[in-house]
Design a protein around this nucleic acid. Structure first.
Lengths: 143, 143
DNA sequence: CGGTATCCTGAAAGATACTG
DNA sequence: CAGTATCTTTCAGGATACCG
């Protein structure tokens, strides 16, 4: 949550996922204060999710852009899950504000939860939680 | 993001998903200040994600518990996506702190992103974003 | 265009004490 | 056990101004 728990973070990442890469584009599209965007991007770079890259298109002057790292791209399923929720529960009667489709085949994007054996898992299906190898406490009752 | 963007919200929801339901259990397990927990739960109830329910077990006095609504359960994929990310990128060498398995078959839980035609979508696969029916602006260049 | 520096404000977190 | 009330602190966000 320290990575993605701040209000603007996931919105900035959304634009990066969608190909918006330059400072002013981000600021304009998001409507975020520019100094806040500066801080947010710096934080994302610190966390290793984004890289600031200078580049130059032929005949143009140098520009900066913000590119997702692999760790940044790996956050996309979280955003897709948030979008899916919003499309179901928060979209107006007109429907979702944004559609994403698989660039290869045009199919719409779905986030699916299932178990390793291929069974689909519905939102309120019971899951069993048990301590993993990295657990810091042994069990339900620590002390 | 207004629903799940606050620092404690998703952590409270996690415990609710995992069956922790009583105020003191939540407070103890999360290490959250009790007044903060009060506010957070009230917010979740306001947002329609959680219901506060009085119940009485035979021979016991009345207690309150906090139960997820359907809209609350529908947030679980978001948390599962966050967990999956953390297990890959943030877990120590020992491994993930918590394992979830399908109560039916014991298979571990996976979050999968794919397209409607069944093709798997990897983190950095290109997606096409286009305005949906509920879009508030017509296109990349509004004005 | 692509930022940084300053200052201010508001909201949420935390500590602490109290109540039925 | 299950909270509420008060107070303080911290910090992200916004406005604004400035710079190469």
């Amino acid at each position: 949550m320290s990575l993605v728990g701040q209000p603007w973070t996931l919105l900035v990442l959304r634009d990066l996922f969608n190909g918006v890469r330059r400072f002013d584009e981000l600021a304009d599209h998001l409507g975020i204060a520019r100094n806040v965007l500066t801080r947010r991007l710096a934080g994302l770079v610190d966390d290793g999710l984004v890289e600031k890259v200078s580049y130059r298109e032929p005949g143009q002057r140098a520009r900066n852009e913000y590119r997702l790292t692999q760790a940044g791209w790996d956050l996309r399923p979280i955003l897709l899950a948030v979008m899916a929720y919003g499309d179901i529960h928060l979209a107006g009667p007109e429907g979702p504000p944004l559609l994403l489709e698989h660039a290869g085949c045009g199919g719409s994007v779905v986030v699916r939860v299932e178990c390793a054996n291929g069974h689909p898992i519905n939102p309120s299906d019971r899951l069993r939680a048990l301590p993993g190898p990295g657990a810091r406490y042994l069990s339900p009752t620590p002390h």
